[in-house]
Structures are given as structure tokens and as C-alpha cells.
Simulated assay, not measured.
Amino acid sequence: MSEIFELEKELLIPFFKRQRVVFVKGEGCWLYDERGKKYLDLVAGIACVSIGHSNKYFIERVKEQLEKLVHVSNLYYTLPQIELAKKLREVSGMDKFFFCNSGTEAVEAAIKLARKATGRKRLVSFTGNFHGRTMGALSLTWKEKFRKPFEPLIGEVVFAEFNNVEDLKKKLSEEVAAVFVEAIQGEAGVYPAKEEFIQEIFELKEKYGFLVVFDEVQTGFGRTGEWFAKDIYNVEPDIIAMAKGIANGFPMGAVGVKDYVAEKVEAGDHGSTFGGNPLACTAALATIEYIEKNKLVENSRRMGEFFKEKLSELGFEADGFGLMIGFDKEKAFDFVSSMLEKGVLVNATSENRIRIVPPLIISREEVEFAVERMRLSR
């Protein structure tokens, strides 16, 4: 398949550094390359493929909608959009929703909503946070290598140290519109916030009047062993950004807000041509329904604990909740390559950090298979 590698260089803008493998099929937690070799997928399209590759229930639901209606724009009403909003209200506890096509779009919408609802401009993010690569979301993203080449970004963004309440207090004032929180930092390598840190944010909210925005793009829809990471910390944000696992890999994003945020919005403040189209909404509904019917939130919790136990036996001290797991590994990129050769896909977020985010359907046997391959790759 060297021809494909050469064609990629010729035809595609080189934004991505890819592993040298060409996948042609998927089934459950497994992917198959063009030679028929199978790989256990512990990446899941970066935490997107919640209910597994080629899920029959998902395919039938999407196929049925595909044969009815794909897109009419938000100039008109469609049933799947309303049905999805009702289901999201049920599982998220938020009141009203806006639909888009990705996580970074959800964050962009959250920025505008926070500024409109409060009348303030300043935003606070944290060291280690990753919120996306479009200009607003990028402004909230910590790593300089992502931000520096594209400055000037949007103004009035300040960073506080993650898990450091005292530093956060120094950055707060009555000019702050919102504090953006990744309760479990994903792109950084799976680092959870301390419970007392999250509680302090909500106490400070009462003092300063800012909104709390939870970026649940990676943590939502059962990934952490709860429907959302907010449920781990027993808090209710004002705004939640969602995407990734919402539609099993279909491009879909959403923002959920409390009523008092939505009340400040006027028609025309924001929009999306493709966001919330009938096909995307049906894909999301099918995914959420399958998670519910098959108790995958619970499976995420159980298999996550089991995975961490097995990693501990190998000497890895794993962080995270549910099936969102990170651990330190020297020469992490070499480890990724070694695991690829042994038929397991893992992701390195840095030179010394591995992230594991498999489909929520993963079994004990598949976890044991992965850990045994890791033992051979140490």
C-alpha cells in the first residue's frame, strides 16, 4: 500500500502525522487492514466510536433515515432534531440545545453564548486544556505550539494553573464571562481535576457571577463510567460542549445550556448550515439508545476499573475514569509503533504519555488481550 502513502503526500494538506496502516473494515472493537490483519482498537477514532464499528443497530437506524431525509437546513423543523434534544435533556440535565458538527464548533458556540449571556468578555482556561483548533477554541487551548503560529487570537483570555485554586483566584474578577473546564483533560494525556478544585470553581462562581462551561467533548456519553464527567463531581455547569462519542463517529456536536443562558439569546446570534440535520441527529439518537439499552455506561465503569487493575499488574499507574485512561510510558511513540505491530492501537499524547479510549463495548477478554500485548511490548 505504499502507493496510498505517496498519494497522501501528493493530494492532502500535511496536517496529520499518520501511522503507516490502511484500514478498510471494522467490526466491534476491531479494525482490519487491507491485508486482512486485525487490530484491537483502543483509540476508537479518538473516543468517538462509542458503540463499536459496524454496529448493526446503528447502521439500520441511520440507513432508515438516509432513505427518508438527509438535510433541509435549520430554516425548517425536523423530527429527529426535537427527538434528540428531548433525549439529551434526559441524559445530560441541561435545558436547551444547539447542534453543530464537531467539538471545536461546540466550544465556539459556548464562547459566544457565555459572552452574550453575561455581557462580559474575559474568559479563563487552564494549563493543559485542549478545546479545539478553530480560532476561538484555539484561544482557550494551552499548548503554545498550537496557538503561537496563528496569533493574534481572540482577546481577553487568561490561563490559570490546573488544580490550583489560589492561582485561579488571582485570575478572577467581575469581568470574567466564563471559566472553561476540562474536568478530565484528554489531549493532555488523561489528567482528572481534583474534586475540591471543581467544588471551589462553583463556589467562586457565586462570588464573581461568571458561567462555568464544561468541555465534555471527550468525556461525554459514558466515556468516564458516567453519562458525563460532571456527574463524577456532582455539579451542574451552566453550559456543556459535547461531541465525539455522541454519534459513534458520525460528525456531530452539541451545546447544552441552562434556561437562564438560553433566555439571553436572540435569533441570528449563532447558527449552522449542517448542524442538527436529520441524519446526524438520528445517528446520535441511535448511539444514545444503544448505550442505554446495553448498559454501556456501566460497562465503561467496570471495564475501566478492570483495565486499570491489569495495567497496575504491569507496573503502570493509570489515571482516569471509566474507559478514559492515561498512563506514563517512556518513549511513548515507540510503544505505539510496537503495539501496532502486535495488533493493538493505542495513542500517545506526548513523548511519555499513553491514552486509552476504546469503544464502550469492550470485553474482559479484549482487555486481557491488550494487556498481554503490552507486556510483550514493554
Score class of each variant (00 low, 15 high):
V261C: 07
T224E: 08
I291D: 12
Q218G: 00
G315D: 05
D334P: 00
E203Q: 15
A318D: 10
F221N: 08
F210E: 03
K293C: 10
A254H: 01
R301Q: 13
F306R: 10
I239Y: 02
N277I: 11
G249F: 03
I288W: 01
E330C: 11
M324C: 07
G315F: 10
V261G: 07
V235S: 03
I232E: 00
G304D: 08
M242Y: 13
G343M: 08
D328M: 14
P278G: 14
L279A: 09
V257Q: 00
E236Y: 04
G249N: 04
F306I: 12
K308S: 10
E317L: 15
N294C: 12
M252I: 00
S338Y: 08
D231K: 10
V212S: 13
G322C: 06
K207N: 14
R223Y: 09
V257L: 11
Y260R: 15
C281F: 05
R302Y: 11
M303R: 09
V265T: 02
S300R: 02
D328E: 13
F228V: 04
E263C: 06
D215E: 04
K342S: 05
D259C: 01
G209H: 15
V336D: 09
E298N: 06
E206M: 06
T273K: 13
A332Y: 06
F202T: 01
D319G: 07
S338V: 04
K205E: 13
V212F: 15
T273P: 00
V297W: 00
G256M: 12
T282E: 14
E236W: 00
R302Q: 08
K293M: 07
R223K: 15
K205D: 08
E289Y: 09
A262V: 06
I291F: 06
L211Q: 01
E292R: 07
F274M: 09
K244Y: 10
D334H: 13
K329M: 12
M324H: 03
N299T: 11
F202D: 02
T282Q: 13
F221L: 01
T287Q: 05
E263D: 13
C281H: 02
G249S: 14
G304F: 07
A262P: 07
N248A: 01
F321D: 08
F306V: 05
I291W: 14
P278I: 10
N248C: 09
K295M: 07
F316L: 11
S337I: 01
G222P: 02
E289I: 02
F228A: 10
F250K: 01
E206P: 02
G249P: 04
K342Y: 04
K230M: 11
K244F: 09
Y260P: 01
R223V: 15
V255F: 03
C281Y: 03
L296T: 05
K230G: 14
S338H: 04
F274G: 00
I246S: 09
E263Y: 10
L285Q: 03
K331N: 15
M252K: 02
H270C: 04
L204R: 14
T273I: 15
G343C: 11
K258H: 10
E341N: 13
L279I: 14
F202S: 03
V217D: 02
N294A: 03
E317S: 15
Q218A: 15
V261E: 00
E206Q: 12
Y233E: 10
S300G: 10
A280Y: 02
V336I: 07
I246W: 01
S300Y: 05
D215W: 04
N234Y: 14
